[in-house]
Design a protein around this nucleic acid. Structure first.
Lengths: 341, 341
DNA sequence: ACTAAATTTTTACGCGCGTAAAGTATTTAG
DNA sequence: CTAAATACTTTACGCGCGTAAAAATTTAGT
C-alpha cells in the first residue's frame, strides 16, 4: 500500500487525477460530486490513506462538523451512558463529537463552553448542571452556538429541550407503589442540583393527592454530586428517627436510593417485597447500576435510546436549517420491576 | 467592556500596542515575553476578550497543545474517574485534553486513534483495551505520536507505562484474607478483557503457595465488558454447584465482585464477616461504587491520584524532550476494609 | 447529432497565524 | 556610561484548504 507520503490536497489531487477544488468538494460532501469521480477519489483515498488536514479545513469553513457533548458529571454512569449514545449518533450522522464534563462545577461548565466556542461547533448537545449553572453564560453561549438542551431543562434556552417526562416518571411509579402496598413517602435532597428533582417532588405530591393519600416528603441535607453518600447519611438519620411514616420509600433518583439501600443494610433493615422485609425502596432513572444493588432496585428507567435519538435528530435538523420554534419534548419512562419494591 | 469585535491577531496587536509576532509569541508561551509587554497584552485580552483562532494556530505549529486521553470504556466509573483526574492535570499543565472512549470495541479503538492522529496531539495518555486491542495499530500509532500507556500494560509499547502494581494488589489482599479467615479462592473471567487479570491470578497463585495453602481458581464464562452480569451469572453457577471450596472469595475485580454480591443476595447467601454470614467476598480496584454495595465491599484500591500524577508527569516530561528509555512504573494499592470480608 | 444542463478544471485569492530575518529599541552588566 | 545581551518591530513568506469565477469538459435529453 503506502505508495508515497501524500502531504496535502494538492499532491493528492495529482495522484487521484481529480482537480483540487473538486477533491475539496468531495471531502465536504461525497455526494456532491459525480459518481465516477467519487469512485476515483475514494480509490485514491484507500490507496494513499490521505486525510485532509482538519485544522486547515475548519479554519475557513463557516461551520465545522464538530459537535460538542457536554454533561454535568461524566463519572456518573447515567451521564456516561447517555453521552455514549449521543456520541454514536453524531458519528453515524457524519459529525465529529467531542465529550466534555463540567465535573459538577459551574465554573468548569463555563470554561468548557468557552473552549467549545473556539471550536466553532456546528452544534452542541448540552445537559446543564442545573440550579448551579451560570444562567447568563449559558444564554450567551446559546445565542452564539446552536445548542440543544437535554436531560435537564432550562426554560426556553437553546434550540429546544429533549428529556424525560419526570411527571410521568414519578406519577407512574407512585401509582405502582400505591397499588402494591403502602403509599410511599418521598426521599429527596433538600437542595437538589438538578431541576428535575423539583418536578419529581411535585409529581409525587400531585399523584398522592389524586389517589387520596397524604404525601410525606423527607428532604435530606447535603450539597454537591455525591448522591450516594447523601442518601446513605440521610437514610441513617431517617431510619434512626423513624421519619419514614410508611414502609415504602420512593427516592428522587437511583443514586440516592443506592445510598439508602446501603444505610438499610448497615442498620440491618431488610429491604424488599418479601414477608421478612420491613421496607420497600424504589428509585428513579434506570441507572446502569440499579440492576446490581441488593436487592436489585425497582425503578423507572429513562428511555436512553429514545432520548438520545430525539435529541440528536433535533440538533441535526436545526443545523441543517430547519429552525422550528423552541419546544420541549419529554419522553416517558418504563417501570423496571425488581426486588426492592 | 466589549469595546469592539477583534477578529484576528492583526487587529488585536493594533489595539494592544504590541506587534503581531510578539503577540503570537505570547500566546505560545506568556513567559517568553518581557513582563511589561506581557502585562499590556493581558490587559488587552481582558478588555477585548480576544482569543487566537485555534485552527489557524494548530495548522502551522509543529506541535499542538492537544493531549488525547483514551480509555477502553468511559461508562465504567473507574475509567471515568481516572480520566477525570488526568484531564485536570492536563488542564493545569496548560494542555487541551480531549476525552475518548473505545466503548469496549477494538475497531472503535483504532478509529479513535486515527481521529486523534489528525489532531496532531503533543501526546496521548492511552489505556488500551487489552487483549482485544489491535496490537499492530497501537504500535504504529505509538511510533507517530508520543504515547504514554496507563492502566493496562502492553510490553515496551509507547513512552512508558504507569499503572497499579497488580502483584502487590493481589498478594496484599490475599494475605489479609488468609490472616483473617479461611484462605480465599479466586473468582475470575475465563477470558478477561484486561491483561491485569492474568497478573492478578498469577499473584494469587504465588501468594497462596507462599503461605502454604492450596489455591483454587474459579474461571467463569462470558465475553465483553459487562462484568457485573458475568459475575452474577458465574456466581449463581458457582453457588449452585458449590464450586467455591472455601467460604472466602477473592474476585479479580470489583465489578465482578458486585455481580457476585448480587448473586449471593438472590440466593439468600449472607455475605460478610458477621457470625450469621456464610461467605466473605473481596474485590480489587477500589471502584467508586464499592462503598455502596451491600455489604460494602472490602477491596484493594488503586491510588488514583498517584497513578494519574505519575502518568501525566511522565508524558509531559517526554513532550518537553526528556526522553528516557521505556520503563514501567507500578504503584501500590491500599487495602480498604469494609464489611464484605 | 445537437443543445442545454451539470460537472470539472484552471486560476487565483484569502483565512489567521507561525516563523524567519534583519533592523531598532530596551534592558542588563561591568 | 558604554557595550553586550535581550526583547521587540517590520517585513515577508508559507501552511493547507475553502471558495469564487470563468473556461472547458462531460452528460443527458430529444
Amino acid at each position: 500500500m503506502a505508495e508515497k507520503k501524500i502531504k496535502n490536497m494538492e499532491e493528492f489531487s495529482a495522484v487521484s487525477g481529480i482537480s483540487r477544488p473538486t477533491v475539496s468538494k468531495f471531502f465536504n460532501n461525497p455526494d456532491s460530486v459525480r459518481q465516477s469521480t467519487r469512485a476515483k477519489i475514494e480509490a485514491a483515498v484507500e490507496k494513499y490513506d490521505y486525510r485532509p488536514n482538519i485544522f486547515a479545513m475548519n479554519q475557513n469553513r463557516k461551520l465545522t462538523k464538530n459537535v460538542g457533548i457536554v454533561v454535568p458529571l461524566l463519572t456518573d454512569p447515567y451521564f456516561a451512558e447517555i453521552a455514549r449514545n449521543l456520541e454514536q449518533r453524531c458519528l453515524d450522522a457524519g459529525y465529529r463529537p467531542t465529550l466534555f464534563s463540567a465535573h459538577g462545577d459551574p465554573a468548569l461548565e463555563v470554561e468548557v463552553l468557552d473552549n467549545l466556542r473556539s471550536m466553532k461547533p456546528a452544534g452542541v448537545l448540552l445537559a446543564p448542571l442545573g440550579r448551579a449553572s451560570d444562567r447568563v453564560a449559558l444564554e450567551k453561549f446559546c445565542r452564539d452556538v446552536p445548542t440543544l438542551i437535554f436531560d435537564s431543562s432550562v426554560d426556553q434556552l437553546g434550540l429546544a429541550f429533549v428529556g424525560s417526562d419526570n411527571f410521568q416518571f414519578t406519577s407512574h411509579i407512585t401509582d405502582y407503589l400505591c397499588r402494591t402496598g403502602e403509599p410511599p413517602c418521598f426521599f429527596e435532597m433538600k437542595t437538589p442540583a438538578n431541576p428535575n428533582a423539583h418536578r419529581r417532588r411535585q409529581a409525587y405530591l400531585t399523584a398522592m393527592e389524586t389517589f387520596g393519600y397524604t404525601p410525606q416528603v423527607i428532604s435530606v441535607e447535603g450539597e454537591g454530586w455525591g448522591f450516594e453518600e447523601i442518601g446513605r447519611l440521610g437514610g441513617h438519620d431517617a431510619l434512626a428517627n423513624r421519619s419514614f411514616g410508611t414502609n415504602t420509600v420512593l427516592c428522587s433518583n437511583d443514586r440516592l436510593a443506592i445510598g439508602l439501600l446501603t444505610a438499610c443494610y448497615e442498620r440491618n433493615v431488610r429491604v424488599g417485597r418479601g414477608p421478612d422485609c420491613t421496607i420497600r425502596v424504589a428509585g428513579q432513572d434506570g441507572h446502569p447500576h440499579s440492576r446490581y444493588t441488593c436487592p436489585p432496585l425497582t425503578t423507572i428507567s429513562h428511555d436512553y435510546d429514545a432520548v438520545s435519538k430525539r435529541a440528536a435528530e433535533a440538533l441535526f435538523e436545526a443545523i441543517d436549517g430547519d429552525v422550528s420554534p423552541w419546544k420541549s419534548t419529554r419522553i416517558e419512562g418504563k417501570l423496571v420491576l425488581r426486588d426492592s419494591a
